[in-house]
Design a protein around this nucleic acid. Structure first.
Lengths: 109, 109
DNA sequence: TTAGCACATCGCAATATTACGATTACTTTC
DNA sequence: GAAAGTAATCGTAATATTGCGATGTGCTAA
């Protein structure tokens, strides 16, 4: 027990849930917002930006990289990160499709 | 250690992360999709729909209720659930705003 | 009243996540 | 080369989540 029973659900449902999981931490939201705001490669100053320990920040960056939302390239001694626009837009589309308009229910609850 | 350090982040960042957390399980995605598809009050048949134990299903429903995404009203012996359109549309707007268009980066990574 | 159903809650076990110090790997600078 | 830097990874502790059986609560039906 304790582990999510992924096999009970469709691939699409697991995909959406995993995408949401990538966003389900304020540090990762903060990283993404920072990268979007800069709209450029950002090298090195993410640890100071967040206020978390270096190891923790690195872990969150790894999760965002695994999710595909960001990409990092080694630039000399440090690493530069930026949004992966392709995956970013996929997220936008998929969440947009999920949250399509819902009609008001009249005679209900 | 182990607890999320919410105080390091803005209210908005914590809000988005908490909204994502509400969606970060395939069972909850499945529940929401089912309710959206029916677009009506659904009484009682959610346990069979999911395939999880009754206690587990109830727990997921509770989380969605806490997030405000669904509402349940007691209808005799059973409980009827439906989407809360107001909160649903708030989610749509907030995720939509978060995933606003990102310009392609030319000379980058 | 009693039996049965629907659902919530409790208590627990298994697993996942979060956080950080310590270490490692690599690069730059001296 | 050695020293200092940047960032990834390891190991571990604290906390959170997931799942389910058991139990409790309230309604319905006989």
């Amino acid at each position: 027990m304790g582990a999510t029973k992924s096999d009970l659900f469709t691939k699409q449902q697991n995909d959406v849930a995993n995408m949401a999981k990538a966003l389900a931490h304020p540090a990762r939201i903060a990283i993404l917002q920072y990268l979007v705001k800069k709209n450029a490669c950002v090298c090195g100053d993410l640890v100071e930006e967040l206020g978390l320990a270096q190891a923790t920040t690195s872990q969150h960056l790894k999760e965002l990289k695994t999710a595909g939302l960001i990409q990092g390239t080694i630039e000399g001694a440090s690493v530069c990160y930026c949004i992966n626009p392709k995956v970013w837009n996929q997220y936008r589309e998929i969440f947009g499709a999920f949250f399509k308009e819902v009609a008001e229910l009249k005679s209900c609850c």
